[in-house]
Each structure stands twice: as C-alpha cells, then as structure tokens.
C-alpha cells in the first residue's frame, strides 16, 4: 500500500540511517559529560521543534514545550537503556510531553479564543491568501483539539507528518492495526467537524463529494 507522504521534509529523528541505538554523545552524556548534553540538544533540536510545532499547531507556546522536552530528556537520560533506538525514545518523549502540555492547556480556564501566535504564511502568498490560510489552520487545529490525545497523535503523525503507519505504531508502542483504527476514527471525526465549520465547510463538502464518487475513505 502506498503510504501517506507530505510535502514537508520528513523528520530526521525518524529516518536517520546511521541511527545507533545509543549514539556516542548519549553514552557520554549518561556518564556526566556536560558538552555531550549540548551536542545531543544541537543534533536534535530542530527535529524536536518541528514535531512539537506540528502537534501543537498555531498555539504560540512551542518554545515552552521544546524546552520542557529537552529538560525531561536530560533528566531521564540515565534511565534510557538502549532497548529502542535513541531517536525513537526521543520521539516518544516529545510526543508525550507535547500531549501532556495540550492536556494541561485544555484543563486551564480559557480567557479568550484568539491564539497568541499568528501562524506565518509562506512568503509567496499574498496578504489576503495568508490571512485565509491562517484562518484555515486555526480552524483545523481547533478541530484537532477536540480529538482524544491518542487519535490526535496518530492523525498528526500519519496524515500531517507523513510517518508510515508502521513507524507510528513503533513510536506510540501500539499495534499497526490500532494505528489504522484510530486513524480511521480520527479522520471521520475531523471531517465531520469540518462540515460544521464555516471556514472549512466548503473543503469538507468537496472531500465528501470525492468520497461519494471515489470510495468510502477520504
């Protein structure tokens, strides 16, 4: 089966070919070498940031989460025993910390509906196009916020991030079939919510039209 792929560059922490179970700088950091902690951070910070940003959406609090991810990674590094690839472990920590952050944010009182961070449109878009795009992103992530953590993670990793289902299963430590089941229900919920959203309704209608003529899945 053809796997989903996105136009965005894939995550390095997912596809590094020379990804040892315990990279040398991790082994040195576990021994108390402060410089190796910095090497670990510099090596992985953009990959972690990309995943955090994608999981969070246009919230504007990615900085805090990225920082929290690395603090947790540093503190937990001594418990990493190399039973999985370091990149897989790092990715799991990233997903868990980000989902915790989202969960905590949901439980806090909401003072307003406006997002503090305005998603920036690519440079080749006109201001009008950029504003419309921002509206669509806001609307999409507002819908994703209504998904359960499990479905949200699978949907973003697979459909937005382009991670193959097998890798998603490894990262989330669940069977591939569960990935597909969650993905199915996540898509169903997302597209049902899109129909009720004025910003995304037209897109949803067109997609449903495709479903009707092309098959039973988006």
């Amino acid at each position: 089966m053809v796997m989903v792929s996105s136009n965005a560059p894939p995550l390095g922490i997912l596809v590094s070919a020379d990804d040892d179970a315990i990279p040398p700088y991790v082994a040195r950091a576990r021994g108390g070498d402060a410089r190796s902690f910095q090497e670990l951070y510099r090596t992985h910070r953009r990959d972690v940031a990309r995943l955090v940003a994608r999981l969070l959406g246009p919230r504007g609090d990615a900085d805090d989460v990225i920082q929290e991810v690395f603090i947790q990674v540093f503190r937990s590094l001594v418990s990493f025993r190399g039973e999985s690839r370091f990149s897989t472990w790092l990715h799991r920590v990233t997903v868990n910390v980000t989902l915790m952050h989202i969960r905590a944010a949901k439980s806090r009182p909401q003072l307003g509906t406006e997002l503090s961070h305005e998603p920036s449109a690519p440079d080749d878009h006109s201001p009008v196009e950029g504003a419309a795009r921002n509206e669509r992103m806001r609307a999409l992530y507002k819908i994703l916020d209504t998904l359960s953590d499990k479905k949200r993670a699978v949907f973003i990793l697979h459909d937005l991030e382009g991670t193959p289902a097998g890798q998603v299963a490894t990262l989330l430590d669940i069977p591939v079939l569960t990935v597909r089941t969650r993905l199915f229900y996540a898509r169903k919920e997302v597209y049902a919510a899109m129909v009720g959203d004025p910003t995304l309704e037209s897109i949803a209608r067109e997609m449903q039209g495709a479903t009707a003529s092309g098959g039973d899945e988006l």
Binding site: A8, Q67, F70, F74, S120, D159
Partner: peptide
Amino acid sequence: LLDEASDDASLDAIDWSRIDAAVAAEGE
C-alpha cells in the same frame, strides 16, 4: 489543507536564545 498544516513556517517564530540558555543550564 493538509499540506498547509504540514509546512514549516511556524518554526520561524521560535525564540531559540531563550531555549538554548535554559537547556544548557539543565544539561550542566
């Protein structure tokens, strides 16, 4: 729509200097 959500533009807004300092201190 999904392509739009997948682009990397949001990384531009990250304040790396603040994160660098906090993470370096924690590493030490």
